[in-house]
Write a protein that binds this DNA or RNA. Structure first.
Length: 329
RNA sequence: GGCCAGGUAGCUCAGUCGGUAGAGCGUUCGCCUGAAAAGUGAAAGGUCACCGGUUCGAUCCCGGUCCUGGCCA
C-alpha cells in the first residue's frame, strides 16, 4: 500500500489509466541559474522511467534555444541528458530573435504532444515570465515589424520623454504605469495601442491555463548560490567560452537582438571589441549572473504555487509528489 | 631610522579655496505582456583613521600618534 512498495508495473498501469482517462500531470522545475535544475529535471525523468512511466524534458530557457551557444548557456550535453528526450533546445539561429509569445506556443505544443503520447512533460527553466506565459492564462497582443521599426526610429531620434508624452495623450493610465525614461516599454505600449487600441501595463493574475500542473523550485542559500555561479563561470572559461563566442561572430551573433545580449556572450563581445580586458569580461559575467539570479529569485518568490525543495533531494521529492498525484490513496 | 604619498560608504575612489560629504560597483526593496540571461525605479549605508590646537564653525588648516604603500639608508 505504501508508495515504495508499489512495483514499477503498478505505476505504469496507473499512468496508463490516467493517460486514457484524463491527462497526465505536468511537472515543473523552477530554480535560479546554476541551481542544478537542468540536472534535476533529467534525474526526475530517470526516476519516473524506472517506475515504468516515460517522461521527457521541455526546456523553458530562453537561451538554450540557440544553436551553437553551448558552453555559455550551460546547455546539457547529450551525455548529461542521459537518454531523456529534450524539447525546444537548438531551435533558433543566433541571428533570430527569441520571443515570449513564440515560445509560449512552442512549449504548449510540446507539452500537449508529450501528453498525447502518454509521456509526462517535465518543464525546466529559469525565466518566470516564460514559465508563466506557458502555464498561465497569458495572451500577448500582436506585433508588427513596420510599426515597431518606426517607433524605434522615433525613440532613437526624439528620445523617450517625447514618446512618453505621446503615450500620455493616447492612454494616460498606461503612461502612468511606465516611467518616462523606459524607452523600450514605451515603444511596446505605443505599438500595442496602434494595433489594438488599448494597452494595460499590468500583469494578469496567475491562473493556470493548463490542467494538473505541479510546480517545484530548487532552494539554494545565497552564499552557496554566489559561489556556484563563480565556479560555473570559471569552468565555462576553461571550456573555451571565448572561442565559442569568437566562432559565433561569423554566424551573425552581433546582429542577434537577444543572443548577443546573453550573459557572458555580451561581455565577451565587448572584450573582443577591445572595450575591456578578458579578465574584466569574466568578472562582469560573474557579477551580471549574480544580479540575474537575484532577479530570478524575486520573481519566483512571488509565485505561491511553487513548492520549494532543498536542491540535494529535489529529484526524489518530485518523484514522490508525482506518485502521490497518480495514486492519492 | 629618514624622505614621500596616502588613510572619506561593504569595495574602488572623487570632493570640500573651512559651513558636518558624493560617484561607480555591491547590498536591499520594487516595476515588468511578441528583446525577460533583456529593460527599469527607489532606498539603506559614512562621529571623512585617532588625539589635541587655531576658528563662531574643522573631514579640509596646524601639531602629534597610529596604520598602509613606495623610495633612501
Amino acid at each position: 500500500m505504501g508508495h515504495d512498495g508499489r512495483r514499477a508495473s503498478g505505476w505504469a498501469a496507473l499512468r496508463h489509466e490516467r493517460h486514457n482517462g484524463g491527462v497526465l500531470p505536468v511537472l515543473v522545475v523552477n530554480g535560479v541559474t546554476a541551481s542544478g535544475k537542468t540536472a534535476a529535471a533529467v534525474e526526475v525523468a530517470q526516476h519516473l522511467g524506472a517506475d515504468g512511466v516515460p517522461a521527457e524534458v521541455v526546456n523553458a530557457d530562453s537561451m538554450l534555444v540557440y544553436r551553437g551557444m553551448d558552453i555559455g548557456t550551460a546547455k546539457p550535453t547529450l551525455a548529461e541528458r542521459g537518454g531523456v528526450p529534450h524539447h525546444l533546445i537548438d531551435i533558433l539561429e543566433v541571428t533570430q530573435t527569441a520571443s515570449v509569445a513564440a515560445f509560449q506556443r512552442l512549449a504548449r505544443a510540446a507539452i500537449a504532444d508529450c501528453r498525447n503520447r502518454g509521456v509526462v512533460p517535465i518543464v525546466a527553466g529559469g525565466s518566470a515570465l516564460y514559465m508563466r506565459a506557458i502555464l498561465d492564462e497569458f495572451e500577448f497582443p500582436g506585433t508588427d515589424p513596420a510599426v515597431r521599426g518606426r517607433l524605434e526610429a522615433d525613440l532613437a531620434e526624439l528620445g523617450p520623454a517625447v514618446l512618453h508624452a505621446r503615450l500620455a495623450e493616447l492612454a494616460p493610465q498606461a503612461a502612468a504605469g511606465i516611467l518616462p525614461g523606459n524607452g523600450r516599454r514605451i515603444v511596446r505600449a505605443l505599438e500595442v495601442i496602434e494595433l489594438t487600441g488599448s494597452f494595460s501595463p499590468v500583469l494578469p493574475q496567475a491562473v493556470y491555463a493548463i490542467e494538473d500542473v505541479l510546480q517545484f523550485g530548487l532552494e539554494l542559500d545565497r552564499t552557496t548560490m554566489d559561489a556556484r555561479i563563480e565556479q560555473r563561470v570559471d569552468r565555462m572559461w576553461q571550456q573555451g567560452f571565448v572561442d565559442e563566442v569568437r566562432g559565433l561572430i561569423p554566424c551573425g551573433l552581433r546582429r542577434g537582438k537577444t543572443a548577443s545580449r546573453a550573459l557572458g556572450y555580451r561581455q565577451i563581445l565587448e572584450y573582443l571589441d577591445g572595450s575591456c580586458t578578458e579578465d574584466e569580461a569574466r568578472q562582469a559575467t560573474v557579477s551580471g549572473t549574480r544580479r540575474f539570479a537575484r532577479k530570478q529569485r524575486g520573481w519566483f518568490r512571488r509565485d505561491p504555487r511553487i513548492t520549494w525543495l532543498p536542491a540535494g533531494e529535489a529529484a526524489e521529492r518530485i518523484r514522490d509528489a508525482f506518485r502521490l498525484a497518480l495514486d492519492p490513496s
